[in-house]
Simulated assay, not measured.
Amino acid sequence: MTGLATIRILLVDDHPVVRAGLSGLLSSQPDLEVVGEASNGLEALDLLEKQKPDVILMDLRMPQMDGVSAIRQIRAKFPKVQVLVLTTYDTDSEIVRAVEAGATGYLLKDVPREELFRAVRLCARGEAVLSPPIAARLLGRMRGPAEENLSVRELEVLSLVARGLSNKEIARKLKISEATVKTHLLHTFGKLGVDDRTAAVTVALERGILRLES
């Protein structure tokens, strides 16, 4: 193969029609390859060692082992694998539980195809991503001035993002895990009502939450 490096994807959803649709959609992109499918979290864990995916597209409500439980085990056993939640459920509790379990991103199933492709590519690089409706829900959950709601650690992480550091570099500098960096970023996205790190820095600068160093 030449050109772009291929991103290996594992689909985890209990509906075969959904998996088939996603597989066809993702396979239309030259840099995306679906390497396996699972109908629940247990099957996903069994497939991980053999298929070695870069990104898992994970539904939340499934039989035998739900998405949140699977995310926790995947993060513990395969910390380099990124999990992108793709679900119809947008309740506050579902979002927060998935993020706290270690999801790299959270999308709704009605997301436009280009947004899905973009999110998969961002997650493969370890970058946190939220779909705009999810960012809006989290923002609504955390009413009040954003700068008051951002924790000291979230501000620290965001300021390092503004300086151009990657998640791995931020983790090393703050002596925390990359998963923790992503969790802080996802919480920050929700509080600022944005869906990626560039927008978070832009909004934070506009609001005076962050200031450029002279």
Results as ranks from 00 to 15, higher is better:
11 L>V: 01
64 Q>D: 14
95 I>L: 06
172 R>I: 09
108 L>R: 01
188 T>V: 03
106 Y>T: 05
19 R>L: 03
20 A>K: 14
120 V>R: 06
137 R>V: 12
119 A>H: 10
75 R>Q: 15
151 S>P: 12
94 E>Q: 10
113 R>F: 13
89 Y>V: 09
138 L>Y: 01
133 P>M: 01
179 A>K: 11
96 V>L: 12
107 L>E: 07
38 A>Q: 04
125 R>C: 08
189 F>P: 13
184 H>Q: 15
159 S>H: 07
152 V>S: 13
122 L>C: 02
193 G>Q: 00
155 L>F: 09
131 S>W: 04
153 R>D: 12
104 T>D: 11
98 A>V: 04
32 L>P: 04
148 E>L: 15
133 P>F: 00
65 M>L: 15
166 S>H: 09
5 A>H: 11
28 S>R: 14
161 V>L: 08
60 L>C: 00
46 D>K: 12
34 V>N: 05
206 E>K: 14
22 L>V: 02
108 L>V: 02
172 R>D: 15
48 L>T: 01
210 L>E: 00
5 A>G: 09
187 H>A: 13
172 R>T: 09
55 V>T: 03
189 F>G: 10
141 R>G: 14
91 T>Q: 15
20 A>E: 14
171 A>N: 07
178 E>N: 07
22 L>H: 01
188 T>D: 04
68 V>P: 02
61 R>A: 12
54 D>C: 07
198 T>W: 15
204 A>R: 00
177 S>M: 06
100 E>P: 00
52 K>T: 12
105 G>N: 06
126 G>H: 03
93 S>D: 14
39 S>V: 13
193 G>D: 00
214 S>I: 06
44 A>N: 00
13 D>Q: 04
149 N>R: 15
96 V>G: 01
24 G>W: 01
177 S>Y: 05
24 G>F: 00
203 V>A: 03
132 P>W: 01
202 T>C: 07
163 R>C: 10
207 R>Y: 07
10 L>A: 06
111 V>S: 09
164 G>Y: 00
16 P>L: 00
3 G>S: 12
33 E>D: 14
214 S>Y: 08
130 L>C: 07
68 V>I: 14
105 G>M: 07
202 T>G: 07
136 A>I: 03
188 T>A: 12
75 R>G: 08
193 G>W: 02
41 G>Y: 01
171 A>F: 09
206 E>V: 05
13 D>G: 04
147 E>L: 13
209 I>N: 03
137 R>D: 01
213 E>D: 10
71 I>H: 04
45 L>H: 02
